[in-house]
Amino acid sequence: MENKQIKRHTINDIIEILGDTPQHEGLHIHTSKNKFKEIPLAYPFRSDNYAILLVVSGRLKLQLNILKHEVQKNEIIVIVPNTFTHILEMSSELEVIGISFTMDFLIKNAFNKTEIDTLNFLIAKNTVKLVLNKEELRIFKTITNLLQEKMNVTFYYKNEIILHTFNLLMYELATIYKKEINTYKTSLSRDEELTLRFFRILEDNFKNERTVQFYANILCVTSGHLSKVLKKISGKTASKLIDEVVIIEARILLGNSSLTIAQIADQLQFSDQSFFGKYFKKNTGISPTAYRKSLV
């Protein structure tokens, strides 16, 4: 894994990087038509907002946490807040529609706590990727265009219309997700299902548990079988995947200058700073102190 700084961005940071003008508090739509000659965010980052990306043409390859995804024409990928995100490749003909919004916007202005429970595609543990058919694509574009148009002008009941239009878009996506997840569940092989369960458990336990045996025990398989399946499906062994997610979190914490290395070691549940230092250097080739200095 490359030792690049993992930056933290707010929704306003990303709007500025994309060269856009803010449209609505906590909500933004970006339409890119072959706009960029190079990747605008070519480094790993985490953002505090949701991002729903539709590839209209071309393709986009990105890493989300420890897995790589390729998004092609008429496909949508959902990125939840605080996901490690690294855009790896984008085709020259890439056209993408991106909808970014904060959790604060979602809860305070759009959905109440009861309604948000129905939007599983926004709270799913695994990365959600949807494939839109011709009619679904038409509806998505129509609502998105209307939403973007309403955010860029001043008129009576502007906020109310924006919120109801946004809610309509979310429910359209929820409908597509509901349809696809039922098909997805029935089409998973046993190895794919085991891999998915491993990633869910890893996300919840990586700070406390770093042994393959722990995850194998929960999944009721041997450690050897688990690693064999993960290698087959993801290309990496269980121990490698565990190390990668721990190192990603460590690099993010090291980017926070208010935390001492001892405090970071404690947050990641290492017995002491020395053990954390050895672990970090083994997996990155550089000490935590040297990594932190390289960020300046």
Score class of each variant (00 low, 15 high):
N283A: 04
K108G: 00
I116W: 01
S274W: 08
M90D: 09
G277I: 09
L130Y: 07
L219V: 06
N112K: 00
A110M: 01
S294F: 02
N49M: 02
N145V: 06
E115S: 15
P81Y: 02
K141E: 14
T102R: 03
G235W: 11
E75V: 08
Q5F: 08
T175N: 14
K158R: 15
E209Q: 12
T195H: 09
K207V: 02
N205L: 08
K282E: 11
I14V: 14
L67T: 08
D191P: 14
T222A: 06
N82T: 08
I261E: 12
K293L: 09
T222K: 14
I77A: 02
R197H: 13
E25W: 10
S223R: 14
S92T: 10
S47Y: 04
K4C: 04
L254S: 01
L137M: 05
L202W: 04
L253S: 10
V71I: 15
F206A: 05
Q5C: 07
L230K: 11
F84E: 13
D117A: 07
A42Q: 03
K278V: 09
R200A: 15
A42W: 10
K228Q: 13
F84P: 03
R138K: 15
I261M: 03
Y184N: 09
L106D: 00
K232F: 06
K281T: 04
I261L: 10
I17T: 11
T237M: 05
K129H: 03
P288H: 07
L27V: 00
A124Y: 09
H30S: 08
L226N: 04
Y291G: 05
Y50P: 03
L119I: 03
T10F: 04
E193H: 12
L259V: 02
I161Y: 03
N65R: 11
G285N: 02
F155D: 11
I107Y: 09
L18E: 06
L169N: 00
